[in-house]
Design a protein around this nucleic acid. Sequence first.
DNA 1: AATTCGAAATTCGCATACGATATCTGAATT
DNA 2: AATTCAGATATCGTATGCGAATTTCGAATT
Lengths: 239, 239
Amino acid sequence: MADGAPVPSLVEQVYERILSEICEGTLAPNARLIQDELAAAYEVSRQPVQQALMLLRERGFVADAPKRGVIVTPLDADVLRDVYETREVLDGLSCRLAAERGSDRARIEGPALIARGREAIAGGSVARQIAADVDFHQFIYAISGNRSVEEAAHPHWHFMRRIMGAVLRVERNISSDIWNEHAAILNAIIAGEPGKAEKLGRTHIARASKKFSGQLRALQEQTAARHRSRSLTAYPRVG
Amino acid sequence: MADGAPVPSLVEQVYERILSEICEGTLAPNARLIQDELAAAYEVSRQPVQQALMLLRERGFVADAPKRGVIVTPLDADVLRDVYETREVLDGLSCRLAAERGSDRARIEGPALIARGREAIAGGSVARQIAADVDFHQFIYAISGNRSVEEAAHPHWHFMRRIMGAVLRVERNISSDIWNEHAAILNAIIAGEPGKAEKLGRTHIARASKKFSGQLRALQEQTAARHRSRSLTAYPRVG
DNA sequence: AATTCGAAATTCGCATACGATATCTGAATT
DNA sequence: AATTCAGATATCGTATGCGAATTTCGAATT
């Protein structure tokens, strides 16, 4: 009776596939996406592709390039700053609420998430490290009991996946400090200390912001230089 | 060359029309929306209607009722609390940023917004009062210079429109305190006092939250009672 | 060699069509 | 009177088709 989504619609499948490719970097920034090509590649009609693209555009992953398809939006350091500013208050709120309302679930389910995060770093898989980080923060949204924060933060996460992916493709490893901070946050939540949890959450994000902003900026200067030297003009097409 | 949107697509037009009807209450909570009927009513094909409904669903204005169309999501007091909690931090942030980066625009464009708000109350038009309130807060998002806050808060605003509409259809007037608080916030922003602006912004939202939560709860008890006495079972259809 | 211009090719948005699945209705049965 | 069951109906998701607008590209011109 209560089937969440036993067979996700083609729209959702296509949406997820395109988004994954964007986050993984398979679809590079500024790459052109053509409905017909995507439809052929995924073996569906243009209809679900068009709808998926509309959702992606809605959330800022692609931008219109009229009569030339849509292009993957480039990662911009200013946008990153904005996103982190917003996440700072949103995650701060979710930590506070979690400490107020979600201590029990935090105690039961939290430690496993921390463990998985540390394993991911040890294992060295970029995808795992990203997934673990996303999962941890998503978990806090969930136990905060406020669907609205989760929704507000949701679009940011895909953006974060893109950023982390881009940086980690060069860095290979998230610093393990991250997981110490996560553990501290979790403890404050379990202890039921809203003020402390909020503060730790906010500083955690602020630190991450500094780290990633710096690395993204460095990364972009590199690639900008490379592009200049190659006199790259046209947009690459999706293969 | 840079045309924003000279001819909004049918999807957007349909989206706006449906959303307006939801916010105005023409489409009541739990009303069934059938693609065919909407298409006929708006004289377009089902295609743009389907896509508009997907966006509305995405943003929580309608919910799936498989094979029975979608229904307008009811306004729920708990959801309202969640939304206000989120808005409190989001609006607090935008006020702070506005004081840091947007004093100039605030000084130039702000007073007119306050004036329009007070006129709206004097004039007594519900729609105007809502629009003025939305405009004021949206203005702060804009001058905060952080697109991300604006995006995060965006879905909330339609929700607010629905709430304010429902309450004002009974109340007739927003309390004029609201606009005194708005004026105080604006002054802090113009004066370039981020801390004060943030604090005023947050308490403003907190107060509004209390006010509207109470009124919504009262309203819902009334209508619940009315419905009980009429033994309303089926969902109303869209006419 | 650079520029202009027009025809061909792209690409999209929207309409229409089809098939699958769930719901509804009403007659037959207990 | 309540229940069961099957056919009719409603509704959606996806595929395909069409027309309009824009870009692209190569040939003619300066």
